[in-house]
Each structure stands twice: as C-alpha cells, then as structure tokens.
C-alpha cells in the first residue's frame, strides 16, 4: 500500500483518534456503553490498520510480537490476580467489596466541587476498583490476542502448490 499517499496520510491522521477513543471506551465503560472487550478490539483495530497500510515490519516495531505474546498472558493474570488479591484480603474470589482502601476517595477540597456533587469518588475503591482492574485485564488480553492473530495471518505466505 506504499503507493497510495491518500491512504497513508489519512491513516496517520486517524490512528491517534482511534487510540484515544479506545482509551475512552476502556476507562469510561462503567459509565456509558463500553468496556474491556470493545476497547481491546478498537485498540487492536488501530494496530491492524497501521499494519495494513505501512506493512508488517513497521507495526512490529510499534508492537513487537514478543511483547504482544506476553501481554496476552498479562491481561489474564491481572484478572485472576484481582480475584486472588480479594481472597488474600479476606473476601471471596472476585469479591471486590474488600478492596476498600479509603485513600483519597473524596475529592480534595481545594478542587472546588460542591459537597453534594455526584463524582465523590476521586480514586475508585471497592466494587468500582475491582471492575476497573478486571476490565483492564480483559482489555489487555483482547488487544494482545487480536493483534497476535493478525500477526499470525499476515506473516504467513501464500503456498504455491
């Protein structure tokens, strides 16, 4: 695709927004539609778009296959690790209620929020924190698996037989 300047330029323009949107979907998934699965796929879509237009070596530089392979496992471990931490803190597996930490859960007063305002969780805790971590794990795994599958298909050469 090196000979299509329009595609190359438009891709470069689009990718930052796709990544930003992926981050929004990941971290805003508790409040609106979205979550780890969608964010992971959107992130992977940005990487795949880059790979399609600029070639496999270019995208291998951005996201080396070795790193991607490790990220697949990391996401799952983040998920299961959240469950284990809950158990260590005395709860059941994936019972996020024990994740209450009480640090900075209220907004500092110098940020002038009215006391009755809705966003009174500055740092997430309890269930919110648990959901956040779990979705993060899902997002990492999905991104990595989709990218890895794309690498596997794109790295294959056509057999002439």
């Amino acid at each position: 695709m090196n000979s299509f300047p329009i595609i190359r330029v438009i891709t470069k323009l689009l990718i930052p927004y796709i990544l930003l949107f992926g981050l929004y979907v990941q971290f805003h998934g508790d409040f609106g539609p979205g979550g780890g699965f969608q964010a992971g796929v959107i992130f992977a879509a940005a990487l795949i778009l880059y790979g399609l237009v600029y070639g496999l070596p270019a995208v291998h530089k951005v996201a080396p296959p070795k790193v991607i392979e490790k990220l697949t496992a990391l996401g799952l471990l983040v998920y299961a690790g959240t469950g284990l931490v809950c158990m260590l803190l005395g709860g059941n597996f994936l019972d996020y209620d024990v994740l209450n930490h009480g640090i900075l859960t209220e907004l500092p007063t110098f940020l002038d929020f009215q006391p009755g305002d809705k966003p009174n969780h500055f740092l997430p805790e309890g269930q919110h924190l648990g959901i956040f971590l779990v979705e993060l794990g899902v997002g990492i795994t999905v991104t990595a698996v989709m990218t890895m599958i794309f690498y596997a298909f794109a790295g294959r050469e056509r057999v002439t037989s």
Binding site: G35, F37, V142, V145, M146, I149, A152, F153
Partner: peptide, 17 residues
C-alpha cells in the same frame, strides 16, 4: 451476548487458521 461475540471471533479466527 457480549461475551459470546468475543468468544465467537476467537473461534472464528481458530477456524480460519
């Protein structure tokens, strides 16, 4: 269905491989 869709793409990728 959210979980089913993502499992679906994973199995589809396996079938295509």
């Amino acid at each position: 269905m959210l979980t089913a869709i993502v499992v679906g793409i994973a199995t589809t990728a396996l079938a295509l491989a």
